[in-house]
Design a binder for these strands. Structure first.
Lengths: 239, 239
DNA sequence: AAGTGGTCTAGACCACTTC
DNA sequence: AAGTGGTCTAGACCACTTC
């Protein structure tokens, strides 16, 4: 673990315990350097992470302050702001929820031109096509259409789909998932989707189209997830 | 302008001109240090920015590589990944589009308890309540419900609403907008909204609920924007 | 004038990949 | 063994705010 990550965790804890209450000033960078026995750059990196997670704000010449948290915001011990890249399973089981999956489709086919482009492969390569509904605490939450190149993700089995594909990729294949590009839209469900999600056909869905990348830059996943039941996507943006 | 920002701009240009094509390796950090006559930390910071914008990826022990851009992705010369915090007006006029606003409501009132909490003010303070429809190239794109504390944003006038509130805040009031917390959902329009947006009542909208902050940590804006016509919200997340 | 955070340097050491 | 990016140090200088 890096020094700055440890400092991030420590300051996070101090904020969540109320040692540093909302609007209070953190010790100055110089003081934090002394306290943690590190150099200025290490403190700076830690504060940068905390700022990007929306927990503090920094004012040149003035100091670093604890942000007032909005109602219902939880300080996460993990690195993620809103649990984006952990995978569906990890995110929900971490909250103590029961997750099930119904797999409607699991086949291998040639990708459409659009998907081939997104994954940066040839239309003559093969991809898995997976259709799953994810069920959290007995409520159908989301229907996912996932495409993955078999060349990159070999030997994918039904049992992985029923649990976590991400765990298979990271633990068994030992690939490191790096980041994802997402496009978010509002859509209406098709008749089939409404049926599979047990919703009325006039409930809008939040569609998240995603291309996931591993750390060597290759796209390992193109997916479209359509979330029901007022699913919320949270994000923090810097000016 | 910082050194690293200049390097970011320069490398961006080299990528968009094809000097560094997709999948090619950038010069090593050491080489870039020589080339730009800066230290390693400066190059690192520049590459960090480019990575967060999704233009490159870095592999320890291996090098820094140009990412394959998805179809339709534009490299922006500005700092923003997806133009989140520039304000609606600036974002669209930058693209050469004509932007108009219809102001339906412009009044001062006490905030609801929920909005008072979001803005971290008392329910006895006053806020502007603004309802606007934004029209881009003669198409109604979005209806916005905006609440701002009059204590923080004094003397707001109709002419600002018709153009850019952000410009008024940054240029006239000289407040610096720092960041925003957003929650995104899919919703259906009300009958009134469908009318004002000139859409059918069964077209889903992308709702973006936002709290905007200035650089001293105070919330200057609570707003709910409901976007029509398949508006897309784009984001990049790191693992 | 004193304190603050932001940027930057020259250099060190490390884990990792193999250009 | 050589090259790579990532982290970290001790210290400098700067713009900014006034703790």
């Amino acid at each position: 673990m890096n020094k700055y990550d440890l400092i991030v965790q420590d300051i996070k804890q101090d904020i969540s315990l109320g040692t540093y209450p909302a609007y209070s000033r953190l010790p100055s960078v110089a003081q934090l350097c002394q306290q943690y026995e590190v150099s200025k750059i290490t403190i700076n990196k830690a504060l940068e992470v905390l700022e990007q997670q929306g927990l503090i704000f920094r004012r040149k010449g003035s100091g670093t302050f604890v942000k007032k948290l909005e109602e219902g915001t939880q300080i996460r011990p993990s690195k993620e702001v809103s649990g984006q890249m952990e995978g569906f399973m990890a995110e929900h089981t971490a909250r103590g929820e029961r997750v099930k999956s119904i797999v409607y489709t699991f086949e291998v086919q040639h990708p459409s031109e659009y998907i081939a482009k997104a994954l940066d492969i040839s239309p003559e390569d093969f991809v898995y096509r997976i259709v799953r509904v994810r069920i959290v605490d007995d409520v159908s939450q989301v229907i996912e259409y996932t495409y993955m190149p078999i060349g990159l993700i070999p030997n994918l089995k039904m049992k992985h789909l029923e649990h976590s594909i991400y765990a298979y990729i990271e633990n068994t294949l030992e690939l490191r998932i790096a980041n994802a590009h997402r496009v978010i839209r509002a859509v209406m469900p098709t008749t089939l989707e409404a049926e599979r999600l047990s919703i009325t056909p006039n409930e809008p869905l939040l569609e998240v189209e995603q291309i996931g990348y591993i750390d060597d830059g290759r796209a390992f996943e193109y997916s479209v997830a359509r979330h029901a039941h007022g699913y919320e996507f949270m994000t923090i943006s810097m000016h």
